[in-house]
Design a protein around this nucleic acid. Sequence first.
DNA 1: TTTATATTCGTGTGCCCACACACTTTTTTA
DNA 2: TAAAAAAGTGTGTGGGCACACGAATATAAA
Lengths: 355, 355
Amino acid sequence: MAKNKKTTIQDLANYANVSIGTIDRVLHNRGKVSHAKRKKVEEAIDKLDFNPNLLARTLALGREFMVCSLFPEATTSESYWSLPKIGVDQGVEGYRDFGMELNAYEYSLIDESSFVKNADAILGKNPSGVILAPLFEKESLEFVSKLEERNIPYVFIDANIENKKNLSYIGPDLKGSGFIAGKLLNSVLGPSDDILIVNMVKGFENSAHTAVVENGFREYFRLNEPRAKRNINSITIPSTTEIEVNRQLTTYYIKNPGIKGVFVSNSGAHIISRYHALHDLELKVVGFDLVPGNVVELKNGNIDYIISQRPVFQGLTAVKVLFDFFVYKKLPHSIQYVPLDIIIKENVDYYINFQ
Amino acid sequence: MAKNKKTTIQDLANYANVSIGTIDRVLHNRGKVSHAKRKKVEEAIDKLDFNPNLLARTLALGREFMVCSLFPEATTSESYWSLPKIGVDQGVEGYRDFGMELNAYEYSLIDESSFVKNADAILGKNPSGVILAPLFEKESLEFVSKLEERNIPYVFIDANIENKKNLSYIGPDLKGSGFIAGKLLNSVLGPSDDILIVNMVKGFENSAHTAVVENGFREYFRLNEPRAKRNINSITIPSTTEIEVNRQLTTYYIKNPGIKGVFVSNSGAHIISRYHALHDLELKVVGFDLVPGNVVELKNGNIDYIISQRPVFQGLTAVKVLFDFFVYKKLPHSIQYVPLDIIIKENVDYYINFQ
DNA sequence: TTTATATTCGTGTGCCCACACACTTTTTTA
DNA sequence: TAAAAAAGTGTGTGGGCACACGAATATAAA
């Protein structure tokens, strides 16, 4: 199929003995066309395997798609949120000549009002579509209901809110990611080694997410080691600063010397593992995300496994989903779980050098 | 950057007070242009941040890129080689309106002459570019030297031949893949469990490749377990039929009861693991590639780890490399190692459902 | 000065599609 | 049966770029 040099509407017109105007009417259900000619044109479309040239169409229509992104701010290039951004930038760049344009907005994780302010700014821009990381659930719900009112399509990225009319969710299966973390940590521990789950929370983001991850983690052990006598504890540290984290860890480890493995439910594993190295503790560590700090610690051997959720790819995919919707009216799967890559010291370089 | 609605050559012409013809001359170093006007145009290009519209250019040029692929034949949709093909098809489909066309050729792994025949057919087509899986080294060398004579760019996929003038190699780091396999198998074995490396060879393809993989595998143990007292043996089975493989395995296992882990250096791990299940052997298995058979066995728990080398992505990337070279004259990295994904029962579904 | 040769620059057309517009033919209404 | 309305169809232009061509000017040779 599609072997013969692609057919144009002119070819169709010749075949059906009509003008390209009539072809256009049939193709776009515009104006009236006599039954006989319509039949003939449809036959031509079928016989000649016509596929409109997207380039010419784009040029002719001169449409523009403005998409806005709303993500947590990437304080440094080291932080996780710079990665989805890279993906979005790359994606939009690839569709630039197709009329796609990006306006990126950021909100602070320690300030809900910054979310609202930026969401309002986006509404003011009246974009064609929105890519949103809905880490503040309540504010996000308000935002998307306004988007729905205005018929602006939106996709969730990295975090999901269920039962909304988003085009798609592109991101990890949170529960699955915890489950896999459980499997990996278990594989490097003895059967009675105690485990600590560390939930570091930067701001006021929805804590339900970490709870789901933790559930997945615990479920692994429930299903696979039901009679294990180990303890699995968890602490929540409302900070990501090294000083504060270290203080709480010290307190905890002194009281709980049986801990042999740590699962860090966000991208801050390197903070924990640096602490271990500093104090000569031989604990196993599993965490998330290939941020630079984690890469270093993985290579050092202070982190055993990192689970990565293809952040760059998430951004790319979100843009593609919007584009396909704009141009082809294609409805994506409503949930697109990204692969959860298992990264170890030995394969980390392949991941870094690629994207 | 690139914020203001994109500039066109007409904008340049207005700014520089010349006709678009002159703009064209400057842009493409055609014809002569007075020094003053050239300067002015260059200034315009810079000031207005001009980037030619790829769509319009493609339409105007009406160029066509015919690329040919030459891969081992995918006997069934189950076999590994159907995957890179899918990637190539997807990639070409995406560039269809840009004038890209594909002619896919296949050769038999048990018949070098089929390679030569298809290679000749490709040369007869005089393609713009070639994507080649050079599993027959000698024949491939002859083929690419002819391509070089004719100035036809080519990329290697999945397997590499070094020091050739290929645009790029897109595929796994073979040694690294063996190394990682070593790490994974070691992680599920006791320190004195013996290991068997199974090299199944379908036809006459270059056996140097499996040797490199095996080297990587052994190197892991050399570096990380230098004083281990385990045996690491390897056998080569010149067949992939279940009957023959089973026969040789039986012979081997009866004589070597200490074997506790098996590393299969190609995509046939499921054949081995089915044998284990059949005979109630609790051996650990590590293999390559997410072919359907391996997926089933991974989920059954008969295979412990699969290392996947993103075959679909390899195909996609190869097409993209050629396209970027044709259109932007962009030279890719000469070696692009794909990420080596570690697949376990718990994350396999995310990989299958995505591509 | 005339003729030949370079140099410099603009116009027009095509690529493929969408769409506004104008035109012709048929049907309906008075 | 003429006039008005509706139905059916073709033409032309625009969108951004490449390129063939021709026009205009300048310079050199005869």
